[in-house]
């Protein structure tokens, strides 16, 4: 399930966006001012952000610039009643991926969000064939070849590896993995040892030296990170 952060100070608009995107299968979080938007975006994990420009405390432009400066590459669609060319350019230059003018068609907005997510997914798609020293991985065929000996890579481990590679710029929590790879509607209360067990299996398959992992790294207390670097 995709997660979405809606930053909008108008209660009626925020409520409509939340309902519409949730209806379309998103998990929606709402922030009502610029500061709250930054705090929420930093803490949470969102696949996309819908960001109003005119916000109390901190403008949408400023929020966008700050997030991009901090390395956040979450697809962001600016949503505003300001339709001047100057504003559109400024928003895009600040790092927005798209710009939608109020009043908008909610179906079009949902479509634009999904389009941006697809584009991001494609950008982050891992290569088909990987090589970790003496281990070669073919993600399409789901085959791992260690020292010339081929071996099947199960689907869940394959998806786990793909997700970690796709988000190799950050640490991925176990909860996130459960919600995305395992597609649990809500990972709250789910035993995260499941993730750990699958990570162990994955390491057995793809790590050149499973005792000293270099492909899937554990970040204590937070989750896992794809960490392969050729020596």
């Amino acid at each position: 399930m995709r997660s979405l952060l809606v930053v909008e100070d108008e209660p009626a608009v925020a409520r409509g966006l939340k309902d519409a995107f949730e209806f379309r299968g998103f998990t929606v979080t709402v922030a009502v001012d610029g500061d709250a938007a930054l705090d929420t975006a930093r803490d949470g994990r969102f696949d996309a952000i819908i960001l109003d420009i005119m916000l109390p405390k901190r403008s949408g432009f400023e929020v966008m610039e700050t997030l991009r400066a901090e390395g956040d590459t979450t697809p962001t669609i600016m949503l505003t009643a300001r339709g001047e060319e100057e504003d559109r350019v400024r928003g895009l230059m600040a790092g927005a991926d798209d710009y939608v003018l109020k009043p908008f068609s909610i179906t079009e907005l949902v479509a634009r969000v999904q389009a941006n997510l697809r584009r991001r997914d494609m950008d982050r798609a891992p290569p088909v064939e990987l090589e970790f020293d003496n281990v070669a991985v073919d993600l399409n065929r789901q085959v791992v070849t260690r020292d010339g000996a081929p071996e099947d890579l199960p689907s869940l481990e394959t998806e786990l590896l793909k997700y970690l590679i796709r988000h190799q710029d950050r640490v991925v929590s176990r909860k996130e993995l459960l919600e995305t790879v395992w597609e649990y509607p809500s990972a709250d209360g789910v035993e995260t040892r499941t993730v750990d067990n699958y990570v162990v299996r994955l390491r057995q398959k793809v790590e050149p030296d499973p005792e000293n992992p270099r492909v899937v790294l554990t970040v204590r207390g937070k989750g896992y990170r794809f960490g392969w670097e050729r020596r």
């Binding site: 009626a12 608009v13 409509g16 519409a20 005119m54 009643a81 109020k102 009043p103 909610i106």
Partner: peptide, 17 residues
């Protein structure tokens, strides 16, 4: 513009939904 578009946005959005 903002004050006009904001309620219009709500009206249109809920109408679309």
């Amino acid at each position: 513009t903002h004050e006009l578009r904001t309620p219009l946005t709500g009206i249109k959005m809920y109408a679309d939904m």
